[in-house]
C-alpha cells in the first residue's frame, strides 16, 4: 500500500447520516486515507462511505464492544504505522481544517520535528434546531460557544481539590485537544485526546509549545482548528446522551447536557463555510446567486 502524508483514524457507531459529508470534507482538506473502525453500527454505513465519493480511500475495520475508542486507536497505530506520516485521531462530529485554507499536509510539514500536534477545537450548539435539519452539518450549525468557555465537567478541573463551584477551577473547554500524531514516533493512546511518544518526546500546540496531557497551554485557532459539532440538534443531543460518553467521567444527564448546550450558541462562526460550500448537498447562502 502506498505511503500517505495524512490519514484519519476514527471509530464510529450509527453515524451513517454524517459519514459522507465528513469524509468528503476531509478529502478536500488533504486527507489521503481513512482508517475507520465500526463499533457495531446498525445503519448502512457502507452506503454512506460510497456516497462520499472517496470509498477508495477508506479502510474499514470492525471494533466491537464497549469503550472501543482507545482500543481502535491503539490498533490503528500498530496496524498502520508504516502507511502514513501523520494520523489525525478525531471523531465523526469533528471537522479538521486550516483556517487559511492551506492543505493539512502542508501545514503539518511545519511540525515535522515533533511527534504530534495538539489541535484545539471550538464547540458548536444546536443553533435552535429541535430536529435534525436536512442538509450538511457544516452548513446547518454556525453558533458556537465562546473561545474561553468553561464547562464544569469534573474531568476539566485543573487539579484535584480545587473548589468545584468556581469556574476558574476548570480548564477552558477549548484548550482540550485532539491529536495529529506521527505514528512512527507514537507508542500508544493514553486517552482519545493524547498519546505516549517514543523517548519521552512531547506533543506541541499550534504555536510549537510542548505540553503533556490532553490540554494545551493556551487556545490557538489560527493554524489548525477542529469544529466540534457536539450537540447537533436537540433530538440528536438526546440520542447522544442516551448512548453515554466514552471516557470523560460518568454519563451526563440530558438535563446537564442541555445546560451545557445553552453555552454553545453564544457566537456566530462561519469560518468553515468557504471550505465546505463546494461539498455535494451544500445549501447555498444566496440561492439567487447559485
Amino acid at each position: 500500500m502506498a505511503r500517505h502524508t495524512l490519514a484519519i483514524g476514527a471509530i464510529f457507531k450509527d453515524e451513517a447520516p454524517y459519514l459522507a459529508e465528513w469524509i468528503a470534507f476531509h478529502a478536500r482538506m488533504g486527507v489521503e486515507r481513512f482508517f475507520l473502525y465500526d463499533n457495531e453500527s446498525r445503519d448502512d454505513w457502507r452506503a454512506a462511505i460510497d456516497a462520499s465519493g472517496q470509498a477508495g480511500r477508506v479502510t474499514a475495520l470492525s471494533c466491537p464492544g464497549s469503550a472501543g475508542q482507545v482500543r481502535a486507536y491503539r490498533d490503528c497505530i500498530v496496524r498502520f504505522r508504516g502507511e502514513a506520516d501523520w494520523i489525525a485521531f478525531i471523531d465523526c462530529d469533528e471537522f479538521l481544517f486550516a483556517p487559511d485554507g492551506t492543505s493539512l499536509p502542508a501545514v503539518l510539514e511545519e511540525y515535522r520535528d515533533h511527534p504530534a500536534v495538539g489541535v484545539n477545537w471550538v464547540v458548536f450548539g444546536t443553533g435552535g434546531h429541535e430536529q435534525r435539519p436536512a442538509g450538511l452539518v457544516t452548513r446547518n450549525y454556525w453558533r458556537r460557544g465562546r473561545t474561553d468557555v468553561v464547562v464544569p465537567y469534573p474531568a476539566y478541573l485543573r487539579r484535584p481539590g480545587l473548589d468545584p463551584a468556581r469556574l476558574d477551577s476548570y480548564r477552558p473547554m477549548n484548550s482540550h485537544v485532539k491529536s495529529i500524531v506521527r505514528p512512527a514516533l507514537t507508542l500508544h493512546p493514553l486517552t482519545p485526546h493524547h498519546f505516549a511518544y517514543a523517548g519521552g518526546a512531547r506533543a506541541v500546540d499550534e504555536e510549537g509549545r510542548p505540553f503533556d496531557g490532553p490540554w494545551s497551554p493556551g487556545i490557538g485557532l489560527t493554524r489548525l482548528r477542529l469544529n466540534h459539532y457536539w450537540s447537533k440538534s436537540f433530538a440528536e443531543l438526546a440520542a447522544k446522551t442516551a448512548r453515554g460518553r466514552a471516557w470523560i467521567g460518568p454519563p451526563a444527564s440530558l438535563e446537564s447536557n442541555r445546560a451545557v448546550e445553552r453555552l454553545m450558541n453564544a457566537e456566530s462562526d462561519t469560518t468553515i463555510f468557504p471550505f465546505a460550500r463546494h461539498l455535494p448537498g451544500w445549501r447555498p447562502l444566496f440561492p439567487e446567486a447559485a
Partner: peptide, 13 residues
C-alpha cells in the same frame, strides 16, 4: 478568535 475573513481575503496565517 475569529479568522473567518482569511479565506475571503486570501490571507495566509
Amino acid at each position: 478568535i475569529d479568522t473567518a475573513v482569511w479565506p475571503v481575503a486570501g490571507v495566509r496565517a
